[in-house]
């Protein structure tokens, strides 16, 4: 059974992730588990970018805008509602709605790829400078202050329907991991549906797809909105992990990180970017604790080197190598069998 690139493969990966979740508390220290919750939020952001970029062909440089909108929407809604369950849905909805409105302007304007990249990046940067200026008591939504530069506090997750029963960090970790697995399986399932296949064909050749009678603009808005919703969910988990959300979620660095993770992991896969997020996050964190090399310097070098030398990313490069070796072994076996047959008949 072929696993790589099929829905079966997605399910197997999800199974491995469940085993990881169950084992993690006995392997890692408590502090690492708390950090892991933030990283899970970030990896959902990367997953959403891998979905929209790798499978929808929509180059969104400002995916962290939806991530940040999700985080802010969750924080504001949770403070106003006094509970987290509804706020999660509000966050996903607000992020997706924002993306759909933005998508209407860019996709129906038939803006080209590169313009789209720059526009999404700019939206994120403008949100950054807007949110930084919202300090002061006059900037509030309901009872939640936006807090300007310092950001606003994010209430922890609680049991559905019982706002006073807050989840412990360990439970938050389990919930986040569950969200990640659900988002991953959902994305893996989405690209096997008809909708997903049309999106992939738009990535391959937009003109041909529209000549086949599909309204490519609607499909693009669709995948853009879905991935923005997933990014919003990532924002929720991230701000719960950090316990507050600051304008830095909209910063250039945050958008760059998501892009770097996707490129390193591999654009045309879903699991590659998620794994790259975990590995590179802890790598950068350990770099941050020493003074010798600046983190930006290292990230910039990684990005330049990967674009020039490994443009497909780590996972596709490895799986291609693996497939090639398998193909070679297979052809060698076949040759051997033919030789034996000739030998026998002679």
């Amino acid at each position: 059974m072929r696993l790589y690139g099929t829905f079966n493969g997605t399910l197997v990966t999800a199974g491995l992730a469940i085993i990881f979740t169950l084992l993690a508390p006995s392997i890692f220290q408590f502090f690492t588990i708390i950090t892991l919750t933030q990283v899970i939020g970030l990896s959902i952001l990367t997953l959403s970018l891998a979905l929209v970029w790798g499978f929808g062909g929509v180059l969104c440089f400002g995916q962290s805008a939806f991530f940040g909108i999700g985080a802010y929407a969750y924080s504001v809604a949770a403070v106003n509602f006094g509970g987290s369950t509804g706020a999660i849905f509000v966050a996903i909805f607000v992020a997706a709605a924002f993306a759909i409105i933005l998508g209407y302007f860019v996709f129906f304007g038939r803006v080209s790829d590169v313009y789209l990249a720059v526009i999404t990046l700019t939206v994120s940067l403008i949100l950054y400078s807007l949110m930084r200026r919202t300090s002061g008591p006059e900037y509030k939504i309901g009872s939640a202050l936006l807090g300007g530069f310092n950001g606003t506090g994010s209430p922890p997750l609680n049991m559905p329907g019982n706002a006073s029963a807050m989840l412990f960090p360990m439970q938050t970790f389990y919930v986040s991991m569950a969200f990640l697995i659900v988002a991953y399986v959902f994305s893996g399932w989405l690209i096997t549906t008809k909708f997903g296949r049309v999106c992939i064909s738009i990535r391959e050749n937009e003109v041909r797809t529209s000549l086949l009678g599909y309204d490519t603009r609607l499909y693009k808005i669709g995948i853009f909105g879905i991935s923005a919703g997933i990014a919003g969910l990532g924002g929720v988990l991230f701000c719960v992990g950090v316990t507050r959300v600051t304008p830095d979620v909209f910063s250039l660095g945050q958008s760059a990180l998501a892009i770097i993770w996707v490129i390193v992991g591999g654009r045309a896969t879903l699991i590659g970017p998620v794994l790259a997020t975990f590995v590179l996050y802890f790598l950068t964190a350990s770099l941050g604790s020493q003074q010798l090399l600046n983190a930006n310097l290292v990230l910039g070098s990684i990005l330049v080197v990967f674009v020039l030398l490994v443009p497909n990313g780590v996972v596709p490069t490895f799986s291609k190598l693996f497939e090639k070796r398998r193909a070679k072994r297979y052809s060698r076996l076949k040759e051997h069998r033919i030789k034996m047959r000739k030998h026998r008949s002679a």
Binding site: G253, A256, N296, L299, G300, S301, V304, V307
Partner: peptide, 22 residues
């Protein structure tokens, strides 16, 4: 390769920020 140029120059921008900060 327009998109790769975007990405490479983005990496460059982080690199410059890193160098100047150091």
């Amino acid at each position: 390769r327009m998109i790769d140029t975007l990405l490479a120059t983005w990496g460059l921008s982080l690199l410059f920020i890193g160098i100047i900060t150091s």
